[in-house]
Nucleic acid binder design. Structure first.
Length: 111
DNA sequence: CGATTGACGTACG
DNA sequence: TCGTACGCCAATC
């Protein structure tokens, strides 16, 4: 049973479920999926997200600090911040403002 | 097949 | 409080 592919699909599914104007962290998704401490794998899933349909709103996924660590992996280095601002999320210095308030925890919302 | 890297997180000093 | 080290899983070299 190829859980690997399923795991990636789960990551995409959760990220797509993130409401607009909200953000989540890799660790939260990892924990929700059961990977627990392996938040890195979630990042790898995002990397592959470019090859997945429909497009995954990876811009809503940031690290635990609320920092746009993966913005450089987007089409443009400022694309991630632009997308977040379009949804009403304020970003300053590659860092999400009010991150704690707009933080969307799948374990708390979905579970 | 072994070593390194990666969009993270936690622990320790 | 800040900086460094380690772990974890998967993919790539």
């Amino acid at each position: 049973m190829k859980r690997n592919e399923d795991f990636f699909l789960q990551v995409y599914a959760v990220v797509r479920l993130i409401p607009e104007g909200r953000v989540t962290s890799y660790g939260a998704i990892a924990k929700y999926l059961g990977t627990g401490k392996s938040a890195r794998v979630v990042g790898w899933a995002m990397n592959n997200a470019h090859n997945v349909t429909p497009s995954v709103p990876a811009h809503r996924v940031v690290n635990r600090n609320g920092m746009l660590t993966g913005k450089h992996h987007f089409a443009g280095p400022d694309l991630m911040q632009s997308l977040l601002e379009q949804e009403g999320i304020k970003v300053k210095d590659d860092q999400v403002q009010n991150f704690k308030e707009i933080y969307w925890n799948p374990v708390d919302e979905l579970l």
